[in-house]
Simulated assay, not measured.
Amino acid sequence: MTDEISAGHRPACPSCGRATAVPASAHYTSEGTVSYARCECGRWLIVLAGRVIGADAA
């Protein structure tokens, strides 16, 4: 299975709408790759299999 981030698609930040930054950390799970990325607006994003599933409260 190829995750969207590794295929070149970067999901948008739910706060500012910009494409997420390059992941700071990535881990493989049974549901796909989970990664943590910092957006240019300063929020930390949790991305699972190419979709933003969480963000800090900023």
Rank of each mutant, 00 (worst) to 15 (best):
M1W: 01
M1Y: 04
T2S: 11
T2M: 11
D3R: 04
E4Y: 08
E4P: 09
E4L: 15
I5Y: 13
I5H: 02
G8A: 11
H9G: 06
R10Y: 15
R10V: 05
R10F: 15
R10T: 10
P11I: 06
P11W: 06
P14F: 10
S15R: 15
S15T: 10
C16P: 05
C16M: 04
R18S: 14
R18N: 14
A19T: 12
T20W: 00
T20L: 12
T20N: 14
A21M: 03
P23R: 05
P23G: 12
S25N: 08
S25R: 14
H27W: 07
Y28A: 11
T29H: 04
S30T: 08
S30R: 09
S30M: 04
E31A: 15
G32Q: 08
T33Q: 14
T33E: 15
V34G: 01
V34K: 07
S35C: 13
S35V: 04
Y36P: 00
A37C: 11
A37I: 02
C39I: 01
C39K: 00
C41S: 09
C41W: 06
C41G: 09
G42Y: 06
R43W: 10
W44I: 08
I46L: 11
I46H: 03
I46Q: 12
L48K: 14
L48S: 04
L48G: 03
G50R: 04
G50W: 04
R51S: 14
R51I: 06
V52F: 07
V52Q: 03
V52L: 04
V52M: 05
D56N: 15
A57R: 12
A58S: 12
